[in-house]
């Protein structure tokens, strides 16, 4: 297994207001693997995706660190193909263009297909993502489709690029539960079929648990813990990761523990507490925690956490 993507000491900020949205994060992703980014709204998980795809919005800039891609073949390096799907599929599709236009222009751009070839490939892609009567749907507009169908169209569009890395930013958040399950299933299948790597962002640990091989927990622009996903769910080391897991309601009737909310609220990025950003909300915090941000340290096999007082396994 070779490394596809390496992110080193990435720092992203809003220069005009001198606010660091992402503050020195490190991670890597092997080809064919899935990395899950999890955390509350505003923790920087979406911005991490945008920084990797090199499409940060205006007014936000990468000011430090590196994002590098390695190619399999021959050890040569080139920009790999990255495709992205978004949280709200219907507003991510241009309302004045047909589904056919959307897919066919992408097929021309990425694969050089034109005319009938492009049309046939577009139909094949739509069928692949589970849209029936695909040929007749090419003339449809996004407003004629449901959110779930539009997300399938976005995935078909992403496949047109034959990506090595698919970035999925909250791909199922706007969908209802049954649709969520279908989309997750589709992503799993496509990953196995094409061998592409997947970076999936979600605040839903269930989604991460289902799709990801590894997970990284983010809090206030930093990765506070990273581990294989099963390990993270069973033996979280960082108190924040532990708290996130405790927040999840269980559907097991034997499990009588109610979900436990995390006390306090996420601090604003322009007034982050000194030291570990989580310490004011943390039950295990000590004097040390308010002085310096803890360095990332191994707490298990391929399992690292930034905490002075990790939760014992």
């Amino acid at each position: 297994m070779s490394t596809l993507l390496t992110v080193r000491d990435l720092v992203v900020e809003v220069p005009a207001r001198n606010i660091k949205i992402i503050d020195g994060i490190n991670f890597s992703l092997d080809s064919g693997q899935t990395l899950g980014l999890v955390g509350e709204s505003g923790c920087g998980k979406s911005m991490t995706c945008y920084a990797v795809a090199d499409m940060l919005p205006r007014g936000i800039a990468r000011i430090g660190g590196s994002v590098t891609f390695e190619q399999d073949a021959g050890g040569g390096r080139a920009t790999p193909k990255i495709a992205m799907i978004f949280q709200d599929p219907t507003s991510s599709l241009n309302p004045v263009h047909t589904i056919g236009y959307y897919l066919e222009t992408a097929l021309y751009r990425h694969q050089g297909l034109k005319g009938m070839d492009a049309r046939m490939e577009a139909v094949r892609l739509l069928e692949r993502v589970g849209i029936d009567r695909a040929a007749s749907r090419l003339r449809a507009y996004p407003h004629q489709f449901s959110g779930g169908m539009n997300q399938r169209v976005m995935i078909a569009h992403a496949l047109a690029a034959k990506p090595q890395l698919l970035i999925a930013d909250e791909p199922t958040t706007a969908l209802d539960v049954t649709m969520q399950a279908q989309i997750l299933h589709l992503l799993e299948e496509l990953k196995a079929e094409t061998g592409m790597a997947l970076m999936i962002v979600s605040h839903d640990l269930g989604v991460i648990a289902r799709l990801a091989d590894r997970a990284a927990v983010m809090y206030c622009g930093k990765i506070v813990e990273t581990a294989p996903v099963a390990e993270l769910l069973q033996r979280p080391a960082h108190p924040y990761a532990r708290a996130l897991i405790d927040c999840m309601p269980s559907i097991d009737p034997q499990d009588l523990d109610p979900p436990v909310p995390i006390p306090g609220s996420v601090p604003l990025l322009d007034s982050l507490p000194e030291g570990c950003h989580f310490h004011p909300r943390c039950l295990r915090a000590s004097v040390e925690c308010s002085a310096h941000f803890p360095a990332s340290a191994a707490v298990g096999l391929a399992h690292e956490a930034s905490c002075y007082h990790p939760v014992a396994a």
Partner: peptide, 26 residues
């Protein structure tokens, strides 16, 4: 500022193509 414009840019469509074919018709 609409999401479909961000999506079009993410897809690597050249800048003026995004303006002329994706933004202006809207």
């Amino acid at each position: 500022g609409q999401p479909y414009i961000a999506a079009a840019r993410a897809d690597g469509i050249p800048y003026w193509d995004v303006i002329l074919r994706h933004a202006l018709p809207n």
